[in-house]
Computed example of a mutant assay.
Amino acid sequence: MVDLTRRVESGMPTYPGDPAVSVEPHATHERDGYRVSEIRLGTHTGTHVDAPAHVDPAGATLDAFDLEDLRFVACVVDCRGTGTGAAIGPDALPERSALDELDALVFDTGWADKWGTDRMLEHPFLAIETARLCAERNVAVATDALSPDPSDHETDLPAHRALCGAGLPIVENVCTLDALPGDVFELLVCPLRVDADAAPARVVARV
């Protein structure tokens, strides 16, 4: 089991404009005889899953997904050669015959290493043709970047709209992709069970 999940902690990086994250003591062993923590965060904190409701007012919220909807046959797409802030074209995808055997693609842009740095927003993103092809093939998307759309300038979120419009979840901010194999593996995505547009998730690869 390979954990692909960012640790949730106070002051961690967030998408620009999203709520800050804090994990603070509410009760302590010394004062109360037990420990309870208060967590404040946005639904798009750290490693998380976007539901269609994120961009579509009529889209499903996260609690509409069954467990089997968040269990995928997946493989990694190595996009580490893509330039800063550049689009990942459909030629990066596996051949269509291979794509038909998959439920999800995990895009390794190399930007997991930029987490928390000034370059975090400059990640590669999915070209609209790439996102549409995934949507047409009913293949969900995970990325080690902040978003499958650009984060460093204004955008109408076309990749989000293509994927969420097809009823697919989007997993963002995965990490430790260098521990994954070069062939297929089982991807398990376990978000909080909440009627919301997104939620933090524990994301695990079974290899």
Rank of each mutant, 00 (worst) to 15 (best):
D195Q: 09
E30D: 12
A20D: 12
E9R: 12
G81S: 01
M12Y: 07
D50P: 03
A162H: 07
A145E: 01
R35G: 03
D69F: 10
G81C: 00
A58I: 01
A58H: 12
A179M: 10
D156L: 06
P181D: 03
A53M: 09
P52H: 02
H123W: 05
R193H: 09
C175R: 07
W115M: 11
S37M: 11
S22F: 04
R161T: 10
V189Y: 06
A112K: 02
V171H: 05
A145H: 01
A162S: 14
R35T: 13
A205N: 03
T143G: 04
P13V: 06
V189N: 01
R31K: 15
D103K: 03
Y15E: 11
F125P: 14
M1E: 09
V2D: 05
A64P: 00
C190H: 13
G165M: 08
V184E: 13
A27I: 03
D56N: 10
R96D: 12
P90F: 09
R96T: 09
P169M: 03
G11S: 14
D144A: 12
R40Q: 11
R202W: 13
A60D: 15
E9D: 08
H160K: 10
S22M: 07
P94E: 07
S147R: 01
F72Q: 02
F72Y: 01
D195T: 07
G17L: 05
W111S: 05
A27M: 13
T14K: 06
D63G: 01
P25W: 12
P25Y: 13
G85V: 09
R206T: 12
H44S: 11
R96Y: 00
D100W: 03
D108V: 04
A27W: 13
N173T: 11
A166S: 14
R31M: 14
V76G: 10
E186R: 15
N173A: 13
Y15P: 02
P19S: 14
D78E: 08
L157Y: 11
P52N: 00
T84W: 02
L192A: 15
E68M: 05
P200F: 03
R137D: 02
G59E: 02
M120K: 06
L146H: 08
T82Q: 04
S97R: 14
P57R: 12
L126D: 00
I39T: 05
K114A: 12
A145R: 00
A51Q: 08
R202P: 00
D50K: 13
P19N: 13
V203I: 02
L102R: 09
F107V: 14
V55H: 04
V76R: 00
D113M: 02
P52W: 01
M120V: 13
T130H: 05
A20L: 08
P52L: 06
S97K: 12
C79L: 09
D113L: 09
T130L: 08
V194R: 08
L105G: 07
V21H: 08
G83D: 11
D178L: 03
A198Y: 00
D156S: 13
V194G: 03
A86Y: 05
G81K: 00
A205F: 05
S10M: 07
T47I: 11
K114H: 12
A198V: 04
C79W: 01
T155W: 07
V73I: 10
C79I: 04
F185M: 04
A140M: 04
S22V: 09
C134Y: 01
T155F: 03
V8E: 08
G11P: 13
A53V: 09
A74S: 01
T130G: 04
T14G: 07
H160R: 11
D144Y: 06
V2I: 10
